[in-house]
Amino acid sequence: MATEYTDYVESKDKQPRTARGLKTKRKLLDAAALEFGEKGFHEASITGITQRAGTALGSFYTYFDSKDELFSALVRDMSLRVKDHASNAMNEWQDALEREKLALEAFMNFARENKEIYRIIDEAEFVDPESYHRHYEGTAARIFERLQEGSEAGDLRGDLEEAHAWAIMGMNVFLGLRYGIWSEDKSAAQVAQIANDILSKGIVARS
């Protein structure tokens, strides 16, 4: 079972105990995404985050000890949201390739709706390398698990390795950057189909 971000970046007494507490913490995380995404980690401030969230400064310290701790929690939160968004989109699929297509399309849509994710994850490489590594290692692990299931089902080759999952993730990340953040001149479905064609057909000319 996946661990929640609160399991390792916050102590037990920092976790919300009420529905109101959960709502307040959600507001702080959402506000932090906007603050960090717009200003970057170093220019972002706790005051700016609480103002965006519409909460008192004291509410921040009820759930987080520092800006660094909130940033770590936010990276984990965004990673989990990407995972959940993709999982929800993969309810019905005919084969392993269609499953990957749905996953990429879901990620593209998420990136377009949460453009700050790229700046936040990129900054995590320097601000919180552990969270940065965990984000990409977790994503690659989920892709590799799907590839293994596809191999077992007979949809995919039986010799796929972890490196194949990292290659697919790299393709997805940069497609999301080009067509989700820099521009939206192709639909998420069109981009996912192009990626799917690469997986199914390759790029070698065939007679």
Score class of each variant (00 low, 15 high):
1 M>F: 09
2 A>W: 07
4 E>I: 11
5 Y>K: 00
5 Y>C: 10
6 T>H: 01
8 Y>I: 15
11 S>L: 11
14 K>I: 04
14 K>T: 09
14 K>P: 01
15 Q>E: 08
17 R>I: 10
22 L>C: 08
22 L>A: 12
23 K>C: 01
27 K>E: 09
29 L>F: 03
30 D>R: 05
32 A>W: 04
32 A>M: 05
33 A>Q: 14
34 L>E: 13
34 L>V: 14
35 E>P: 00
35 E>F: 00
37 G>K: 08
37 G>Y: 04
39 K>T: 03
39 K>C: 11
41 F>I: 01
46 I>V: 14
52 R>H: 11
52 R>Q: 09
53 A>W: 04
53 A>K: 02
55 T>M: 09
56 A>W: 01
58 G>M: 03
58 G>K: 10
59 S>R: 06
60 F>S: 00
61 Y>G: 04
62 T>P: 00
63 Y>C: 09
65 D>G: 15
66 S>A: 12
67 K>S: 10
75 V>Y: 00
77 D>A: 13
80 L>M: 11
82 V>L: 07
83 K>D: 14
88 N>M: 08
90 M>R: 15
91 N>E: 14
92 E>C: 13
95 D>W: 02
95 D>Y: 02
98 E>R: 07
99 R>I: 00
100 E>N: 12
101 K>Q: 15
101 K>I: 00
101 K>H: 07
102 L>R: 15
103 A>D: 11
104 L>V: 04
106 A>P: 15
106 A>Y: 06
108 M>V: 10
108 M>N: 02
108 M>A: 02
108 M>T: 03
112 R>D: 01
113 E>T: 09
113 E>W: 02
114 N>H: 15
115 K>Y: 00
115 K>T: 12
116 E>K: 03
118 Y>S: 08
118 Y>A: 10
124 A>W: 04
124 A>H: 08
127 V>W: 01
129 P>V: 08
133 H>C: 14
133 H>K: 08
134 R>E: 13
136 Y>E: 04
136 Y>H: 07
137 E>N: 12
138 G>M: 04
139 T>G: 06
140 A>D: 14
140 A>V: 07
142 R>E: 11
145 E>Y: 09
147 L>K: 09
149 E>M: 12
150 G>K: 10
150 G>C: 08
152 E>L: 15
153 A>H: 10
155 D>M: 05
155 D>F: 06
156 L>Y: 04
157 R>Y: 08
157 R>K: 13
158 G>M: 13
158 G>L: 14
159 D>V: 14
165 A>R: 13
166 W>H: 12
170 G>H: 02
171 M>T: 15
172 N>R: 03
175 L>H: 03
177 L>I: 15
178 R>G: 02
181 I>L: 11
182 W>K: 09
184 E>A: 01
184 E>W: 00
184 E>R: 13
188 A>H: 02
188 A>N: 05
189 A>V: 01
192 A>G: 07
193 Q>C: 01
193 Q>W: 03
194 I>A: 12
197 D>L: 05
198 I>L: 14
199 L>D: 03
200 S>G: 07
201 K>L: 11
201 K>M: 07
202 G>Y: 05
203 I>Q: 12
207 S>C: 01
